[in-house]
Design a protein around this nucleic acid. Structure first.
Length: 956
RNA sequence: GCCCAGGUGGCGGAACAGGCAGACGCGCAGGACUUAAAAUCCUGUGGGCCGAUAGGCCCGUGCGGGUUCGAUUCCCGCCCUGGGCACCA
């Protein structure tokens, strides 16, 4: 085999041996094994739950894991009781899709992939308390996922107490008072009024149907995203918009259509207000909080009833601008609105029906992408509740059935969409808010600045005043009420797939109807039965339905065959880590009180809305039922950036099967050049100088068979140069992924970790540079060579440190400590580098300097740190040694280097004592000969002295 | 369209509270070592200009303005890149 450079370089220290030695030792010694210890302050650092994909980890993935590993080791040395667990999100769509692709059972592929992940994590030097490992597809875990679902099923949200309560308290209320005085969250369903007697007289089926509107886990028929290719419904968050294809699944990009289906939901909307409020007290990136606020989408306004002419029904609308009520000139209903066809006059029925069908059958793609709005007049009129005016009722595709009431009062003068609609169909436009330059015939005036006009009792008021006054008047006259509307919808919780937690519900046939009932908690877990063929059918019938023996129970009842979505397990895993083996509860409240909340949660920003909002919701629910004591689960959230890949392109002439170095291209004949294509080349076979590694070209051809027959023609100097390099997302198909195992084999785990941390700010996207890692490698190796001689003996002296040495090391302690605290790993590393350069410059091997430096280095390069630590004769781990403390007295300097600027431009520097006063400095500088040189013949207007910073002289 | 980040050498990036722009690393160039290459070590490295040297000058943090003794940092307007939302009444 060709002897590559690293093998020569690696002779000075055997990183491979050192890495493995300490990885095994940490595992054996369980250095991160923790138990609750009230005498110590806890620190809970958590990584986002990985889904163990079949491709394994690439070098971009572990960025966050390395950061948390650094923090965990650092906090441990600082004396905290550090909980740093790891586990796997193994249920769900991706795992199942992978299994289908490989033709294996997901139970098997999941197991393999987890083993691979753990192996890779170990090689990076990541250390966890594996005794707390959580795997969502493990029945011991999903027993509690199912338990939480049952608790939700058995709960309702009491708005009076502002928390979830057992369904029994609701039933008790109904028995005593009927619906009188009941204030419950029902996701917009209007509670039909009942007397206690009426409730008592209901059949079991009727009662169950009634209660279903209150349960926090409930069945509902709803328009859902059906994905035929995946054979399941998807949550809104799992569906994305594709420019070409329209609505597609996030996984795989398959088309998605809307269909009404009976599905399980979790009533997350009951928690909208608490989810919103909780954001104020947590330390998250503002943009993520904004996304969640937007997702919850709270709007305040009023519900107003508009009577329909000659009919008993009325149209209920929601508006945030009740101040513009006198500007209403027509009404618009969503085409799906239940009254749409009903109110249509006979003469227009046919036309309207056609319109409704056209909109309904129109693929979602078109309806959303078309800029133009479509509408039709129903022939019916509503009556303005204040003026009694007749308002034409239209149908319009720009009004959405699923937001508000599915109907609007159109105020074309002060709403852009209504204005556009009015212009298109020639409907009147009225001005009710006046401000300088407002002309509602030219465009809608949506600002809230101005004064109300043409508005009866609102005239002369400002917009905020008018909003308030209008709502009061509406309520006074019984025309409607104040209302808060949320955009957020309930959480779709069933999937027609095999690989997920079975929903612990059975259906009993009562009077010919299948009524859902919860299974008894003692029967949990409902284990997922083994299926040889688990593929989805393409119809909404879940695979589990095919298992007749499993579905049909001896007592004639039938099991629920839908399974839970991938989110189910990841909603609460962070709690299970606190108490992973508890067989009485998902987590004991005492342990949660000690460990919770998560002090630092690191992960990608892609979970901003889905997982991070579901988990907060489940946490709040568990708090309501007394399991959890903290309202918010994740105190500090840090979103790491992505490591991008560097894609390398070569010039290829496929006809002649030749690949040309870029220097060759110019000399090629025109017809050959025309045929050349830029083709992606695997980064793994790029050499240290950023050229094709010709020495390993045969190896490359074996691995990437598409290049098998290519002849590689280098430049005249024997170097094969690339046509182009580009920064792209790391992806297997771009051939720009690097496996951490390969990188670690070449440079060692420590250099890999140091490099990832050094690359740039943790929260930013930055490209991986194959050559850049050499810097990290040299750094680690040079430290080794400074600490250890050729015979492997430590080089260490007991001499007293000098003042200068102490200043250098204490400044480093101060800086590195603060940097790790704020996750500024890149500057922590650069401080370590500059400090080490100073150590070399001073030629010091004093223990008093090298020991604290080794500790500062240890979270980043734990393997050589541990090795050197033990070479010094220590028996315990360096991570059980205390973190060094910076002493204030060494952080101060006696003199400061003052830049002296003339008119803001630096001209020279002066070394002046720190203790000098402003006046002393001023006098000294003004009398200095260098100053005179610059001020000669000019008038000194002013001198600014900023102690410790700068001197600036203003001359004219 | 709206909201949120961000734009600094050839590259990744640094500059903590408005005070020396370019730390640290990569790359590149020159030199040492070597038969040679790699590795290693040393030196230089934002651009332009003057100067034999020492040294000095000018321009520079996306663009245009402003505040200030002083702006990468604050304010106003614009351009570009990335992310999110997208008929939400």
């Amino acid at each position: 085999m060709h002897k590559t450079n690293w093998q020569v370089m690696a002779q000075d220290f055997m990183h491979g041996e050192i890495d493995k030695k300490w990885q095994d030792w940490w595992e054996k010694e369980k250095i991160f094994h923790v138990t609750e210890d009230p005498s110590k302050q806890k620190f809970y650092v958590l990584d986002m739950f990985p889904y163990p994909s079949g491709a394994g980890l690439h070098v971009g993935h572990p960025l966050g894991y390395i950061a948390t590993d650094v923090v965990a080791r650092f906090k441990k040395m600082q004396g905290f009781n550090v909980l740093h667990p790891m586990g796997f999100d193994a249920f769900g769509l991706p795992a199942e899709q992978y299994a289908i692709q490989t033709g294996k059972h997901p139970a098997e592929t999941t197991k393999e992939n987890i083993a691979r992940y753990k192996q890779q994590m170990k090689k990076i030097g990541l250390v966890y308390d594996w005794d707390r490992e959580v795997i969502t597809s493990d029945p011991k875990y999903y027993k509690w996922t199912q338990w939480i679902f049952l608790k939700m099923y058995k709960s309702w949200y009491n708005k009076k107490t502002d928390k979830a309560e057992p369904i029994e308290t609701l039933v008790g209320h109904l028995e005593k008072h009927g619906t009188e005085g009941l204030d419950a969250w029902t996701s917009g369903w209007e509670i039909s009024e009942l007397t206690p007697e009426q409730w008592q007289n209901m059949t079991l089926a009727e009662k169950e149907e009634f209660l279903m509107h209150f349960r926090l886990a409930f069945l509902d028929e709803a328009e859902v995203n059906w994905c035929p290719a995946l054979g399941t419904v998807l949550a809104n968050e799992e569906v994305v918009w594709d420019e070409e294809k329209g609505l597609v699944s996030e996984r795989g990009g398959f088309p998605v259509e809307r269909r009404p289906l009976k599905q399980w939901f979790l009533r997350i909307t009951a928690y909208a207000e608490r989810l919103l409020k909780g954001l104020e007290e947590i330390d998250w990136r503002e943009s993520i909080k904004e996304m969640q606020r937007h997702w919850i989408g709270k709007s305040e306004g009023a519900l107003i009833n508009f009577p329909i002419e000659n009919r008993s029904e009325s149209i209920k609308v929601f508006t945030t601008r009740p101040d513009t009520i006198f500007g209403v000139t027509f009404m618009v209903l969503a085409p799906e609105h239940p009254l749409a066809l009903e109110i249509t006059t006979e003469d227009r029925k046919k036309e309207v029906e056609e319109f409704i069908n056209r909109i309904k059958n129109q693929p979602e793609i078109e309806r959303l992408s078309e800029k133009d709005m479509k509408g039709i007049f129903t022939g019916a009129y509503a009556i303005h509740p204040f003026t009694g005016e007749k308002l034409p009722i239209w149908l319009g595709d720009y009004v959405l059935m699923h937001y508000g009431t599915g109907a609007i009062m159109a105020v074309p003068g002060h709403d852009k969409r209504d204005w556009k609609f009015a212009k298109k169909y020639g409907l009147p436009i009225k001005k009710v808010i006046d401000a300088p330059g407002v002309d509602v015939e030219k465009e809608a005036y949506e600002e809230k600045e101005g004064v109300l006009v043409n508005s009866d009792f609102l005239n002369g008021l400002t917009v905020p005043e008018a909003i308030e006054k209008a709502i009061q008047e509406i309520e006074k006259r019984g025309l409607g009420k104040r209302h808060i509307q949320y955009r957020m919808r309930d959480f779709l919780f069933s999937r027609q797939r095999y690989w997920g937690e079975p929903i612990p519900i059975v259906y009993r046939n009562i009077d010919g109807k299948w009524i859902p009932f919860p299974v008894d908690e003692s029967q949990l877990p409902i284990e997922l039965p083994y299926m040889e063929d688990f593929k989805p059918t393409g119809s909404p019938e879940p695979p589990l339905a095919r298992l007749k023996d499993w579905v049909e129970l001896p007592d004639g009842s039938r099991r629920e065959t839908n399974t839970m979505p991938g989110w189910a397990g990841s909603n609460w895993y962070y709690l299970r880590y606190m108490d992973p083996h508890n067989d009485q509860l998902p987590v004991s409240p005492e342990k949660e009180r000690y460990w919770g909340p998560v002090d630092l949660y690191v992960g990608g920003a892609e979970h901003a809305t889905a997982h991070l909002i579901y988990a907060r919701f489940v946490n709040k629910f568990l708090k309501d039922i007394g399991i959890v004591t903290h309202e918010e689960p994740f105190q500090k959230l840090f979103n790491q950036g992505m490591i991008q890949g560097q894609t390398h392109f070569i010039w290829v002439d496929w006809d002649e099967k030749k690949a040309y170095s870029s220097g060759k291209v110019e000399s090629l004949p025109e017809e050959v050049r025309k045929r050349l294509l830029k083709v992606r080349f695997p980064i793994k076979y790029v050499d240290q100088h950023g050229n094709v590694d010709l020495s390993r070209i045969e190896e490359m051809k074996r691995e990437f068979v598409q290049f098998k027959d290519l002849e590689f023609i280098p430049d005249d100097d024997g170097i094969f140069r690339f046509a182009e390099k580009a920064i792209e997302k790391m992806s297997k198909s771009y051939l720009n992924v690097l496996n951490p195992d390969d990188v670690i084999e070449q440079y060692g785990a420590d250099a890999f970790r140091v490099y990832e941390m050094f690359l740039g700010p943790l929260d930013e996207h930055k490209p991986w540079d194959t050559r850049g890692i050499m810097g990290a490698y040299r750094f680690v190796r040079n430290i080794w060579n400074w600490y250890v001689d050729k015979e492997g003996k430590p080089i260490l002296t007991d001499e007293q440190p000098t003042e200068e040495e102490l200043k250098i090391i204490h400044k480093a302690i101060d800086r590195v400590t603060r940097d790790i605290e704020s996750l500024a790993m890149n500057t922590a590393i650069s401080t370590l580098m500059t400090t080490f350069n100073e150590i070399k410059r001073l030629g010091t091997h004093k223990k008093s300097i090298l020991e604290p430096f080794l500790k500062l280095l240890s979270p980043f390069a734990p393997h050589i740190a541990e090795e050197i630590w033990h070479l010094w004769g220590n028996k315990d781990s360096i991570f059980n040694a205390p973190w060094p403390q910076a002493e204030e007295k060494y952080l101060k300097e006696d003199t400061v280097e003052y830049p002296v600027a003339i008119n803001g431009k630096k001209r020279f520097v002066l070394q002046l004592p720190t203790s000098w006063s402003r006046e002393q400095i001023e006098e000294f500088v003004l009398n200095h000969e260098k100053t005179k040189k610059y001020t000669e013949g000019k008038e000194i207007k002013k001198i600014i002295v900023v102690p410790g910073k700068i001197v600036n002289i203003v001359v004219k």
